[in-house]
Amino acid sequence: MRYSRNKLAKYRVLKKSSELASALPSTYSMTKSHFQKLISRYGKVIVKPFSGSGGIGVMSVVSQGGQSYKLHHGTSKKRITGLSETYAYIKRITKGASYIVQKKIRLAKVNGRPFDARVMVQRKRGSSEWVLTGQLAKIAGAGYIITNTARSKGKVVPLSDAIRRSDVQGRSVSEIEHRVESIGLKAARQLHNYYRIRTVGLDVGIDNKGRVWIIEANFHPAKSLFLKLKNRSMYRRIVRYQK
């Protein structure tokens, strides 16, 4: 069976693994019933395109209690009254394109700005061994919910630095990094069962309690992010594995 490479299809493949299921935020196609289900259950959701990258089209919806909802898109914020009205407004913005709705993770923050991790997992040509070849943190720019550095004018720092400077409580830097590596390797192996791939770029969220979440997987991740780190050793390693 041939599997699609859109975000929902890859989520469903990852969800098949009992070892990864607890690290995956609930994700569905964006329909009115799915939107209502997740916003009622969690109070906060992320809506984003089925395909694409770079944080384009991503928006946050937060229940304010009663029938009031706050929608955050780019740097703009809007309050809407009524669930049906909120859904209708999102459909107008998305112009009929296919979107998904996902439980919003309360990402850890550095100086009040959310961050997530880009984790590169690769295997050399002819090898069956998956290796974590790089990891870094993407810190959102002021006023943005997305961590894509180009769109939000955010910045890239070593993952350990971001965790150390963040509001994460309850787990050490080494514990979190070990969990990130473990989840990254398991995710790559699971995806490889369904797709012909040698590289997986995972966007991994870390919440303020130190819990690690798989936000999405990309099979053609940009390695240029790693050039923004002062230490270029991870970039060089990623390039070696891609050959």
Rank of each mutant, 00 (worst) to 15 (best):
S224P: 10
I183A: 01
R179W: 06
I145Q: 05
K223G: 14
I146D: 00
K209Q: 14
G201N: 12
Y195N: 09
N218M: 08
D203V: 10
N208V: 14
S233M: 05
Q169S: 15
P158R: 06
G205V: 08
N208F: 02
Q169A: 14
G201R: 08
K209W: 13
L159C: 08
E181Y: 01
I206L: 08
R179K: 12
I176D: 02
R198C: 05
K223A: 13
G205M: 09
V180Y: 05
R171I: 10
A187P: 05
S172V: 14
K209T: 14
E177C: 11
H192K: 11
R165C: 06
R164A: 07
N218L: 12
K209I: 15
V180R: 02
I145T: 06
L229F: 08
D203E: 03
R198G: 05
S152G: 12
I145P: 01
G201H: 09
G154M: 07
R189C: 10
I176A: 00
A222H: 15
F219M: 11
R189G: 08
R232K: 12
T149C: 09
D167H: 13
S160E: 14
G205K: 06
R164E: 06
L159R: 03
R232W: 11
I163R: 03
E177Q: 08
I145K: 03
